[in-house]
Amino acid sequence: MDIQWKGVMPAVTTKFTNNDTLDLEMFEVNIKAQLNSGVHGIILGGTLGEASTLSNQEKSTLIKETVRIVEGRIPVIMNIAEQTTKNAILAAQKAELDGASGLMMLPPMRYKADARETIEYFKQTANATSLPIMVYNNPIDYGVEVTLDMFEELLNSCPNIQAVKESTRDISNVTRIKNRFGDRLAILSGVDTLALESLTLGADGWVAGLVCAFPEETVAIYRHMVQKEYDNALEIYRWFLPLLELDINTKLVQNIKLAEVATGIGTENVRAPRLPLIGEERKNVLQIIENGIKTRPNLVKFYSN
Rank of each mutant, 00 (worst) to 15 (best):
A272I: 03
M26T: 15
S167D: 05
L148S: 13
N137M: 07
F16H: 01
I69M: 04
M26K: 14
A233E: 03
V191G: 00
V146T: 01
T85D: 08
L103I: 08
T21S: 14
T295S: 15
A81I: 11
E28I: 04
K283C: 13
T13G: 07
A186Q: 07
R274I: 04
A11V: 03
M150D: 08
S55P: 12
Q254H: 01
G264V: 09
V144M: 13
N249R: 12
I265N: 14
L35M: 07
G41M: 08
N173D: 13
E153I: 13
A259K: 02
S60T: 10
R271W: 05
R73T: 15
D231H: 13
R169I: 09
L155G: 05
M104C: 12
R296A: 07
T175N: 10
R176Y: 08
R274H: 12
I42Q: 00
R180I: 00
N30D: 13
T267N: 12
K294D: 07
P273W: 09
E235D: 07
N30Q: 15
D231Y: 08
K165Q: 11
I177N: 04
T267I: 04
T200W: 06
G182V: 00
D20E: 12
E145Q: 08
V211R: 05
E25S: 13
I187C: 05
V76R: 00
E65L: 06
L252V: 11
G209H: 02
